[in-house]
Design a protein around this nucleic acid. Sequence first.
DNA 1: AATTCACGCAACCGCCGAGTA
DNA 2: GTACTCGGCGGTTGCGTGAAT
Length: 268
Amino acid sequence: MGRAPCCVKEGLRKGPWSTKEDLLLTNYINQYGEGQWRSLPKNAGLLRCGKSCRLRWVNYLKPGIKRGSFSEDEEDLIVRLHSLLGNRWSLIAGRLPGRTDNEIKNYWNTHLIKKLRSTGIEPKPHKNFTKKEKSRKKEGKKSNNEKFKGQIVQVEKIKVFAPKPIRISCGILRNNSFENVTLSTTTCSSNSNFEKVDVGKDKEKEVKLFPRELDFGELLEGDGFYDEFLMGESCKFSNKVEINDSMVEKVYEEYLLLLSEIQEDQKE
DNA sequence: AATTCACGCAACCGCCGAGTA
DNA sequence: GTACTCGGCGGTTGCGTGAAT
C-alpha cells in the first residue's frame, strides 16, 4: 500500500503567502495553539496544505523569529556547528536563538560556502545520495539506530556528532552590537588544522578555531578538542561571543553521554 | 530601454522516525 | 509485529529582483 499524501492537494493554493493568509494562520494558532497541522488549514479557513502552514508558521510567523542579516558571531557559530554537526540544520538552528533551520540552510548555501572558499577553506561537501545509496544509507541507519537510538549518523568516513536537539533559548549573549564590532577577517593558515584569526582592533593572535574535518577518533583520542571547542580559546578569543553556562552544560552533557555510549560499544 | 544573467530566498517535495491502534 | 498517521527534516526548485550587457 502506498503512503497516503499529507493532504488532498486538489484545489489548494501554492506559492507565496498573502497577508490575509498569514493573518488567518496567526489568529488560528494564537487561539488554538500549534499542532494538528493536517486539520488546521480546514479549521482556519485556509486553502493550504498542512505542511505548508507549519512551514509558514515555523519559519516566518512564529513570535521571536529574528529577521535580517546574520552577525559575525552568528556566522562564526554556524561555521563551527556545521563543522561539528554537518548539514543538521535543525540542530544548528537550535543553538541560534531566533533563527530557523531554513534560514540558516539558505544562508550557508548562498553566503557562507562562498565566504569560506574565498578564505581558502573548502567546506565539507554534503553528499547527494542516489536512490541506491539512499537505501544503503537507510540500512546502515537501521543498524546504528538499534545501538545508538538515532544519536549517531555514520556516513562513509565523515562521522557526525548528532545529539538529540535541544533548543537553547538564550544561548548567546552579545555585549557588542554588530555595528560596534570592528569587522574581523578570517584567514586560513595553510597546513594547519586551526585557523588564524584577526580580531579587529586587537593585534592578531593565533587561536584554535576548529579542525577542518571532525572525526570521532579525534574525540575519543582525548586531545581535548571538544572541550576547547565549547569552552576554550575559540570562545573567549574576543568578547564577542559568550556561551551561556546552561547551554555549555547541556551540550557538554550530550557529549559525555555520547562518549560513554561509544566507549561501551567499543568494549563489546 | 530592453534583454539576459546571476543570485537570494521562500516554498515545495519526498523521505524518515516516532507514536499509536 | 504490522500498518498507518503525523510531524519534522534536508534537499531542491522556481520566482522575484537587481546587476550587467
